[in-house]
Design a protein around this nucleic acid. Structure first.
Length: 568
RNA sequence: CGGGGUGUAGCGCAGCCUGGUAGCGCAUCUGGUUUGGGACCAGAGGGCCGGGGGUUCGAAUCCCUCCACCCCGACCA
């Protein structure tokens, strides 16, 4: 491709509305443009990278035995009614009615459609197992799209769905996909970590996320410094040491207008860990739908809402209103677990603890000397707190660390969560009808474009690993003389013939401009042809931002081909 | 949805407080000089100042309203 004809509008300044590096660089280097909130054009450069990533994903999925297909973006509402997610999925599911007033939606994921397809065709256990995948645009009407390709509303995803006659077979495929994902992210040149994860709105029994480690990541992951335990904080189990407790009697203390944990701790001169933080929630979905629950953690801990929802077998929880708090017997700002009229869930770190401080359920009063076992009759215990750095690893007792991660892949063992309502049935070996067991496996392909940049960039711009670069070589000709143009033209043709993707910058720009653009775009290899080298019959070759080495023109193509590594 | 902020040329910004009919840098176009790390000179084009309404002789500027975008929050009672 000749630069002068290539549509890659580069910017000298960072656009003001971009925050993270990948977003800034994708805009500046001419990879993407915004169409509307969370929705982007992929310009030729961006599409080239997207296609390269897709290709790696595709090769590894095929190698792992999965088959590619393509499902529609527009989906009928009935399928979502059948799976029970029409109500459950929430406003992220973009719904609309077509001209026949037919309820439809844009696919945020494809469990319903694939189950419908497989259910129609599946008859015998002999057809199983099967693993079908697609690489396709998804639409999720995110509350808050941000950071460019990192969290878009429309994005490209690889989603695979496997079907099995039994649980063992599913577990084997889960391991197979897990291994394929490790290969994919390794091939893409990423530092990543698989972590145990919550199953979220997809549902199912077990699940792992693959996180690219980066400070700009939106997720927090807890991992052990000593062993391989790692989990999203939505799920991570971690133990903390419980401070010594007293055995005082329950007594009220005056705390006028003091409500926040830190304020109460300093006002009463106690450690925040001796406080009980009591949060009142309204439960959504599940057996307690609509009920109110009080959840307690230590004052210096954070409640992890997803854990709370799980403990209640609910879809979600939301903070209760003041009226609901009062109805439960509490006083906003001074809630304590004792004597409440609602269900009370207490974090396990408070089991057996005594000498605690909590709200008195009376205005401007707290209590001290609280012993949950003694004073809270209806308390039930569960793991509710969010893991913190320094906690003990549940596997080996080592110290836990927290890191930020970008979720680029997620594998789920779904079981029969979808196959049952969608009636994915087959005739088993014993002649009886059985319901298929299912797994699903996602990779955020367009998010990977951003995630790779988050790990591969410097002050000059993007630094693509060669296997995903839009071009492997930036051919930079300096000056407009016939000799230079002829030599560059020859090299350009030779590279193309050798299957090397090259962007030839033949513009009349000054050298600095060309070098800067090539580096901003992140092209891994620069080949420079100018009067200076030509006098000695050489071109200069350099990896991005490294020193240039002379190479004889006659050996140039072979030399460059070796450096590029025959990736394509 | 709550809070904060921003909308002025393709990009980055000034002007707004204190109304008088729009400016700077980069980019773009023309001509010339340049050509090994974001050149220089001369000239030029490009803006219903986010939309609508109002106040005023007069609005980018003041008021109302809508829209868009960005950030934080939507667990700490």
């Amino acid at each position: 491709m000749k630069y002068s004809q290539f549509f890659a509008p580069t910017l000298r300044d960072d656009p003001a509305d971009a925050e993270v590096v990948s977003h800034k660089l994708l805009l500046r280097a001419g990879y993407i443009r915004r169409v509307t909130s969370g929705v982007y054009d992929f310009l030729p450069l961006g599409l080239r990278v997207l296609r390269r990533i897709e290709q790696v994903v595709r090769e590894e999925m095929n190698r792992a035995g999965a088959q590619e297909l393509l499902m529609p973006m527009v989906q009928p509402g009935e399928l979502w009614e059948q799976s029970g997610r029409m109500q459950k999925y929430g406003p992220e599911l973009l719904r609309f009615r077509d001209r026949h007033d037919h309820e439809s939606c844009l696919g945020p994921t494809h469990e319903e459609v694939i189950c419908d397809l497989v259910a129609r065709e599946l008859r015998s256990y002999k057809q199983l197992p099967m693993n079908l995948y697609q690489i396709q645009s998804k639409f999720r009407d995110e509350i808050r799209p941000r950071f460019g390709l990192m969290r878009g509303r429309e994005f490209v995803m690889k989603d695979a769905y496997s079907f099995h006659a039994d649980e063992d077979c599913l577990n084997r495929e889960y391991a197979n996909m897990f291994a394929a994902y490790q290969r994919i992210f390794t091939r893409l040149g990423l530092r990543f970590r698989p972590v145990e994860a919550d199953t979220g709105s997809i549902g199912g029994s077990s699940s792992h996320e693959f996180h690219v480690l980066a400070d700009s990541g939106e997720d927090l992951i807890a991992h052990c410094a000593k062993c391989d335990y790692a989990a999203n904080v939505e799920k991570a189990v971690a133990h903390r040491s419980v401070p010594a407790s007293g055995d005082a009697d329950l007594a009220e203390v005056s705390t006028p207008k003091v409500t926040a944990v830190e304020d109460v701790a300093s006002y009463l001169k106690v450690d925040a860990a001796q406080l009980v933080k009591t949060l009142v929630y309204r439960i959504a979905g599940g057996p307690h739908d609509g009920a109110v629950v009080a959840a307690c953690v230590r004052g210096d801990d954070q409640l992890q809402e997803i854990k709370l929802a799980h403990a209640l077998d609910a879809d979600g929880v939301a903070l209760a209103s003041d009226a609901e708090i009062v109805a439960a017997g509490g006083v906003t700002g001074f809630v304590g677990p004792q004597g409440l009229k609602c269900k009370v869930l207490v974090d396990e770190s408070l089991k057996g603890a005594s000498g605690l401080v909590a709200g008195a359920n009376k205005a401007d009063l707290h209590v001290n000397g609280l012993d949950i076992g003694r004073d809270v009759a209806n308390a039930a215990f569960a793991d509710l707190r969010q893991a913190r750095a320094g906690d003990a690893c549940p596997k080996c007792g080592g110290a836990m660390e927290l890191s930020r991660g970008i979720e680029v892949g997620h594998v789920f063992a779904l079981g029969k969560r979808y196959t049952e309502p969608m009636k994915v049935e087959f005739q088993a070996q014993d002649g009886k009808r059985d319901i298929a067991t299912m797994g699903c496996y996602g990779i955020g392909v367009s998010r990977l474009v951003a995630a790779i940049i988050e790990q591969c960039h410097d002050e000059s711009g993007i630094a693509w690993p060669v296997q995903v670069a839009p071009f492997q070589v930036a051919l930079i000709s300096l000056g407009q003389s016939d000799a230079v143009q002829d030599a560059a033209g020859k090299a350009y043709a030779e590279f193309a013939a050798a299957g090397i993707e090259v962007l030839w910058d033949e513009r009349g720009e000054r050298p600095g401009v060309k070098f800067k653009d090539a580096e901003l775009m992140g092209i891994p290899l620069q080949v420079v042809i100018g009067e200076r080298g030509l006098a000695d019959g050489v071109a200069e070759v350099a990896r991005r931002c490294e020193a240039k080495q002379p190479v004889q023109l006659s050996e140039l193509t072979v030399h460059v081909h070796a450096l590029v590594g025959g990736v394509h």
